[in-house]
């Protein structure tokens, strides 16, 4: 899914200095716990989260996450936006809830990147 389409589907606001460009998003995940994100996410994904702090951007940078969407109208502080600009990770804010936002993207054909975590730790 194109970044531009994602933003319009979620009626989102772009918070970073990015152009609404045609970068491609491969899949999505909704989570508030960063270790859960690191456990299943794959590169080029969008992360939908209600968590709103610099750690989200750090996590995204470490895990090669493509875009972050803050749900329920949350807006991160200046520091978080600054790091996101530095790391070239677009931040989007939407008034929709996590459940609704995920549902919209899933219905539009964006695959889920969430995996079950079991005791079996082999890849």
């Amino acid at each position: 899914m194109k970044f531009q389409k994602l933003v319009s589907l979620l009626e989102g606001n772009l918070l970073t200095d990015h152009n609404v460009d045609d970068r491609e998003i491969a899949g999505a995940m909704g989570a508030d716990l960063m270790s859960d994100v690191l456990a299943s996410i794959e590169p080029e994904a969008v992360l939908l989260t209600g968590l709103c702090n610099p750690q989200v951007v750090r996590t995204a940078q470490i895990a090669d996450i493509q875009t972050i969407v803050f749900v329920r109208g949350k807006n991160p502080d200046k520091e978080t936006i600054k790091i996101a600009n530095q790391e070239n990770i677009p931040l989007v804010s939407t008034d929709k809830g996590l459940f609704e936002a995920c549902g919209i993207l899933f219905n539009a054909g964006l695959p889920s990147f969430e995996t079950t975590t079991t005791d079996d730790c082999s890849d």
Binding site: D32, L33, M34, S35, D36, L38, A39, T49, L51, N53, Q55, V56, T59, T117, C121, S122, D123
Partner: peptide, 14 residues
């Protein structure tokens, strides 16, 4: 703050 999912060491091992 988004931590303490109890997945840290598991993630490392993976």
């Amino acid at each position: 703050m988004g931590f303490g999912a109890g997945m840290g060491l598991v993630n490392i091992k993976r």
